[in-house]
Structures are given as C-alpha cells and as structure tokens.
Design a binder for these strands. Structure first.
Ligand code: ZN
Ligand code: ZN
Length: 804
DNA sequence: TAGGCAGCAACA
DNA sequence: GTTGCTGCCTAA
C-alpha cells in the first residue's frame, strides 16, 4: 500500500503530495487524515496522509517506508482536506499552512536540534564542555553563534559528538490521577484487620474512604483536602484496596453549572417569518445563503438560537461565528443558557490546552454547537445543519496573513458541502453582501422592529466648525457638555467614543518635530507606557525611549497617546466628581482587560466610558442614555474606499448602544463635516439610503462590489531591484490580462519599507475571478522559479480588507 | 593540496 | 525548511 503524504514543511516547492510505502504492520491502521512520521531527506518529520493507493510512479530506488502512524483516529476529515485544496487554489497559499491552521496549535509539532556527547573523554574545549553542563546532551539554541557551531561540527566529524533532531508535540492530553477502589468490598475489612497499631494514617484513610462511599477519588482531593500523603495511599494500594489510574480530563473554560437554563422566547411575527424561510431551506437541504438585515435590538440572536435548536433536534450540528471582540462571556452565556454542555467555545483568550480540549470535543462530536471567532469556521463537525455569521460586515473575518481566507467564503463552501443554510447577520451589512442580496444571490431577510427596546435614539449632529467660531477650542461641544451634565444629575451613564481608527501612541521631539521611527520599517514606533519602551508593530525592534532627540539632541521628548489621555484630563476638569473608565490600546493590552473594563462599567463603577472604536461592541448597558462621538469624521478621510462604509457602520453601531432598554437614549455626533452622507444617513438611521449613495460612488470609482480588488506587494532589500521587478511584472500583467481588468501601479506601497525591505504595490480591479486567477498563478510560478531565491518577495491578496 | 564556504538541487 | 553535494577560492 502507498500513502500520499503532505509533509510539515511550509515551502512552495514541497507543498505537494509525496508517496510513501506503508509497512505491512501499518496497513490496518493507516487512514486518510492521520498524521504520520516520515523520513524526508536525511531527516524525520511529520506529515498528513491525504490519500491511499496501491501503485506509484516514483522510482523504486527513491521509495521509502513511512516510520510511524501518529494518530489512530484521523485528525482531518475528508471535508477538511478538500477544503484545504480549495483554499490553496483560491487564496494562493500553501496547502500545508491551511491544514496546520485547521488544527489547534497544541497539535503542531516542533523540531529541536540536540547535540549528544558520544566520547566525553575526548572533548577538550572548556567552552563546549560548559554547554553540556552535567548532562551528556544539550538543545542547540536557535541563536547560537556560528563559530561554536563550526567547532561542534568538527567534533561531530570526528565522532566525538553527534547531532540529532527531536520531534516534539507541544501539549498533550491532560490527565488526572484517580484512586479507583476495588469492587471487592471484603478486601477493606481484611486490610484493616491486618494493619499494625502504628499505621494510624492508613487506618484513618480507610475509615474516611468507608464514610465517603465512593468508588473513584481524585488523588488531588485525597492529598490536598483530606490531608493524606501519597505514601499512605500507595501503601494501601499495594495491599490491594484499589489501583491508581490516570483519567483524561478536559480543561473547561465555561462553567456550565453556574448558567441557568433558559427556554426559547416567543418570536415576533417578523422574526417568525425570517425563521421559517431559513427553516424551509434547511428542510429542503439547500445550500442557501441568507442575509439577515436587522437593526440593533431587533432580535437576530433569537432567530439564530431557534435555528440552531432545530438543527440539533434532528441530530445536526451548528457553527456560530462572532467577531473576536464581541465574543464576551455575556455573549457565550446566551448559547450556554439554551444548549448547556453541548456548546464549545473557541476564542483567543483560551490557553493552548483549553483550545485543544474544545477542539477535541468538537472532533469527537461530544458537543453540537461551536461559538467562536473567525477560525471556528473550521470546526471539524461532520454533519453541519446551519452556519451563522453574526456581524458579517466585520473586517476581522478576513485573515490578514496567509492563508488569507475570509470566513464568509469558507462558510459558503461548507454549506455547499453539507447542503445546509448560511445566515449572515448584521445591522449594517457589508456592501458586498447587501448587493448580492439585491441581485438574488443571497436571500434577504429584514427585521425593522425592536421588540423590547425603545425606538432608535435621536441623533444630534454638532458642527465643530461652529464651535470654533464661538471660541470653544475644547474637544467637547457646549451641547455635549450640557447633555452629559444632565445625565449625571439623573445618575445615568455616558459612553464617549474617540474615533481614531488605527492611531496608536508615538514619540516625538518637540523642538525639531522628529518622530521616532523604526530603523527597519517606514513606520513610527509605538510608545508603551508600562515599560517606557518604544516598539515596532511590524518587526521585533524595541528600544527604551531616548532621553534626548537623536537628530537635535533636545531633551524635549513627548509622547502622543491615542488621544484618550488628553481627553481624560479635560473630563477631569469639566466633571471632577465623575468617575471614568478608559478603554483603548494602552489599557486593553493585557488579556481579559477588555472584558473587565466593560464589566466594571456595567456594575456602575464609573459614569463615563471613554474609548476608541473597540467600545462599539460588547455589552449593552441599560443605564447608558447618552453616546457622544467626539470626532465622527476622522476615519472618513483615510485613503481607503471603504472609509465611508466603515464610518457609517461604526456610527450605527454606537448609536444602537444608547437606550436599548426602558430609558430613552440620545446620540451626539461631533464633526467637522456634518454634510457628509455617511454622517447624515447615520443621523437618520437609514441603511438603505446610505447603501444607495455609497453604491453610486463605488460604481463611479469602479470599486467593490462592482469589481473585485487584488493587491500585489513586491518587496526586496534593494530599492532598485524591487522597483525593477514590480515594473516588469506589472507590464507583463498589463500585456496579458484582458482589457476589462484595470491595472493600477506599480507605486510605492503605503508602508514603503517593512523589516528592511522596500515595498511596491500594484492593484487590480476585475469583474470575474477567471480573468485574473490563471495569470496570478502564473505570476506566482515565475516568482517561485526566478525571483524567490534572489531575495524577492511577492504577496498576493485577493479582496484585501484594508488597502495597504 | 586540504580546508572552507557559498550556491544549489533534492527531499518519495 | 534542511541537508549534503559541488565547485571554486585561499592559505600553507
Ligand atoms: Zn520595524
Ligand atoms: Zn529633535
């Protein structure tokens, strides 16, 4: 038998199947989807079996046997392997990268080089002896200097030492030791009678066991809570009262006991209609995509819950995607309330072990519902009944680095595989999705009423130019200050949004204006207050903040925070009695900080929550009756065709935060461009109006959804080389692409240098994937054969979420 | 002429 | 991604 194996090496030349002979003893255990240990050149590495066959074209002399079958049960389903092939083809990435991404990080193998001392008496060099310490081996560090390596290699040639590569698995299954008591109850009496008088502890433990009347007790409980040492237990085990066994346990991030079970809510007529349309499609086993457009508070989640419940009732599984930032404990609780321990949760806050355990529960079908962020779309269920993506417009559903997949595309692919519906839900759908719904590619479902909430809050626009004329130079308009004062007098809460997308704090010299930049990237360094250091977001560079300016030696160094600090001071002056919580990149760097700030605000520990766009999601607070947007327009003027769409989505989202409950809410938008349509339509809560206006501009500019965008980045350490490569490539594209494809560039990329590499960018606007797919593959092949080895980089992103 | 080192193909 | 081979250069 022959196994087709994709090996664990992420290089394009290796990213294909290799045939291995299956030794006789493994023929009954090898399965497609299992991992295997294989010889590859002089090494041993991990690989995935992607096929089994009886014959191979490979030279008989080249053929090798696989060494070991690692998994007795396949890790990857047939579906996942097919999906990986499609993702490779569609996003121009490596198949092995997709396969690795489908599995939890804990299953990834790592490789270590170990130096083993063979003849200890023949080694003279003191430095080398020190490396071994008292052992006869050491792990070769990655950053070891080359002279030491040379010395070691020489000794290896003489046979004094040898190099070995060790394959390691990161995290294993967690096991807990249990004392299993014997079934034979007479043994206890026998042992007890045979005890000598000085065996007081053993006697006490026997009595305790008798009083507990359990058959299995965790060793931890016996030692920590009952206060017996392991020696006492061991002695009794030796006398035959039972055995110590290891039991597999799951590291469980959700406490199911503490969550009260809840029944489905009565749906409104509008919800019922939407639900039944999906249900009909579900019953027909159709792979239909629904766009559920419902304003904030219109009850989309109840439709999700009931659809999932129905899928489970006929033995199917469900995948529920939520953007990472909205995946709060409150969010997951809603699912646990309905489905109890049938829910698995996957998000970035889990440890590697917890993620692995959640994944195993999914893989073994011990849970039926997955609630998770982007990567949860790869949940290895085998009988999916419905896939739901909440807030489908979120750009975080697109993975920024390879494999550059969009969760929406994966969702639709999987729905076709399982013949089940997909629900894309949003209050402000992406233009792409809404346009597809208009064309009938997706089925549009609309919710316009808010069953439990007040009508959408009135939005007031404050023209900050007028404030300037009145002589108010503060970031707070007179109206906003007045409204805030009014809320505080009623003991209500206020949310303030500082709309400064993408800005982080930087370090600047006040005398000459020099901004501290990364020496290897054309980007300013980010100031980290916690340790007084400056870091580069794009490479590993890190340095303490200088005491004097490197270009003019002045010591007037200033830090520009995300802007929230300055506003914090101003609030303290205006409302000295009010407590405030700040939420921005600085205060949420630590894991869990985000959730704890929101929780504190929910507990009324402060009356003001000030933050950047990250506050737009998450909890809804019943006591918040005013949302103030300090600078509604700053994101409008970034050079991105989605700027208006993103601004509208953000404003719509924060507006929904005010007055979701019995109290009436208000929104105040401060702006320097009150006439802009994104702001005007936000005020009117008019998605459709915004959609029509924005579609007009997209049509004018030939932007999505009228076209698709492809972004190609060329980079090299040498500026002239990369400009030459970019020019040649783009010229070739122009000559070979059909006229319907617009080729823009090449031009210097917006981040012109990254990790010491100069960057050029080219943009493609095309209408059909077939128009560019073939040529992009060809461009990549030319890159692999002629450019890659000379230090060039080529990166192709289809439908980038940001134009960088 | 041995030793060293960069460049490169092969990995089943 | 690594490895070991090849051919060229350099120091003795
Ligand atoms: Zn950098
Ligand atoms: Zn200066």
């Amino acid at each position: 038998m022959i196994a087709e194996v994709i090996v664990d090496i992420a290089t394009s030349a290796i990213d294909r199947k290799f045939d291995y002979l299956v030794p006789e003893r493994y023929t009954s255990v090898v399965q497609v989807g299992s991992r295997v240990k294989v010889p590859f050149g002089p090494r041993e590495i991990m690989g995935f079996i992607v096929g089994l066959k009886e014959e191979t074209d490979v030279d008989i002399q080249k053929q090798k046997e696989l060494m070991d079958v690692v998994d007795l049960h396949p890790l990857l389903t047939t579906e996942m392997m097919e999906l990986a092939k499609w993702v490779k083809q569609d996003t121009l990435c490596l198949e092995i990268d997709v396969l690795q991404m489908m599995l939890p990080a804990a299953l990834r193998s790592t490789y270590e080089k170990v130096v083993v001392l063979e003849k200890p008496d023949l080694i003279k060099d003191e430095e080398l002896i020190a490396l071994f310490g008292s052992k006869n081996f050491f792990v070769l560090p990655k950053d070891i200097d080359s002279t030491t390596v040379k010395k070691l290699k020489r000794l290896a040639d003489e046979g004094i030492l040898s190099f070995e590569t060790v394959m390691k698995q990161k995290t294993a299954v967690k096991k807990i030791a249990y004392l299993e008591l014997s079934q034979d109850t007479t043994i206890f009496q026998q042992v007890k009678e045979a005890l000598t008088a000085n065996a007081k502890k053993q006697l006490a433990l026997l009595d305790k066991l008798a009083s507990e009347n359990r058959t299995s007790i965790a060793m931890k409980e016996i030692t920590n809570e009952w206060g017996f040492t392991k020696a006492v237990v061991d002695q009794l085990v030796q006398k035959g009262i039972g055995t110590i066994t290891e039991k597999e346990v799951y590291r469980e991030p959700v406490d199911f006991q503490s969550v009260e079970k809840k029944s489905p809510l009565q749906m409104t007529e509008e919800q019922q209609i939407a639900y039944e349309k999906v249900l009909h499609s579900f019953e027909q086993h159709r792979a239909e995509t629904f766009l559920l457009h419902g304003i904030t508070g219109s009850g989309k989640t109840e439709i999700y819950l009931q659809m999932i419940a129905h899928a489970l009732s006929v033995g199917k599984q469900a995948i529920m995607l939520v953007p990472e930032i909205a995946l709060t404990p409150q969010m997951t609780e809603r699912f646990v309330e309905r489905f109890g321990s049938q829910v698995a949760v996957l998000h970035s806050g889990l440890s590697a072990g917890e993620k692995y355990d959640q994944w195993r529960k999914i893989h073994r079908s011990e849970v039926k519902v997955v609630v998770g962020a982007r990567s949860a779309i790869f949940a290895p269920f085998e009988n999916v009944g419905v896939i739901i993506m909440d807030e489908e417009h979120e750009s975080t559903y697109k993975q920024e680095d390879s494999p550059r997949y969009h969760a929406r595309d994966i969702a639709i692919w999987r729905s076709e595989y399982h013949n089940c519906p997909v629900i894309l839900g949003s209050a402000t759908p992406s233009l792409e999705s809404f346009a597809r719904a208009q064309k009938g590619v997706y089925t549009l479902l609309t919710l316009v009423n808010r069953p439990k909430s007040q009508p959408l809050p009135p939005v007031q626009i404050v023209d900050m130019r007028e404030e300037m004329k009145k002589g108010n130079r503060s970031v707070f308009s007179i109206d906003l200050v007045e409204a805030m004062r009014n809320r505080f007098s009623r003991n209500e809460q206020v949310v303030l949004l500082l709309n400064k997308r993408g800005y982080s704090s930087f370090v600047l010299c006040r005398d000459c204006g020099t901004v501290m930049n990364c020496p290897s990237c054309d980007i300013s360094l980010t100031y980290h207050r916690a340790n007084e250091r400056m870091k580069c977001h794009y490479c590993a560079y890190e340095n303490p903040v200088p005491t004097s300016c490197p270009s003019c030696q002045s010591d007037h160094i200033r830090f520009f925070g995300s802007g929230t600090q300055k506003i914090e001071e101003e609030i303290a002056k205006l409302f000295p009695a009010e407590k405030m919580l700040r939420m921005d990149v600085d205060t949420t760097r630590k894991k869990g900080a985000h959730a704890s700030i929101l929780q504190a605000f929910g507990n009324q520990e402060a009356s003001i929550l000030l933050g950047t766009q990250m506050i737009a999601k998450g909890l809804d607070f019943p006591n918040v009756t005013l949302v103030g947007v300090l600078s509604a327009d700053t994101a409008l003027f970034v050079p991105d065709f989605r700027a208006a769409e993103k601004t509208f989505q953000l404003l719509a989202q924060v507006s929904g935060r005010a007055g979701r409950h019995d109290k009436e809410g208000n929104v105040i938008l401060q702006t320097y461009s009150p006439e802009h349509y994104a702001i005007q339509f936000s005020k009117a809560h008019d998605y459709q109006g915004f959609y029509r206006q924005e579609m007009f501009y997209r049509h004018e500019g030939k932007y999505p959804p009228y076209t698709f965008i492809g972004s190609i980045i060329f980079s090299h350490e040498d500026l002239l080389s990369v400009s030459d490569y970019a020019m040649k490539s783009v010229q070739w594209l122009r000559e070979n692409l059909p006229d319907s494809v617009e080729v823009i560039g090449p031009s210097i990329a917006s981040i012109s240098r990254l990790q010491n590499r100069y960057r050029y960018q080219c943009l493609l606007k095309y209408r059909k994937d077939e128009d560019v797919g073939h040529l992009l593959h060809q461009l990549q092949n030319v890159y692999k054969t002629h450019y890659m080895k000379n230090g060039y980089h080529l990166s192709i992103t289809k439908n980038p979420s940001v134009l960088m």
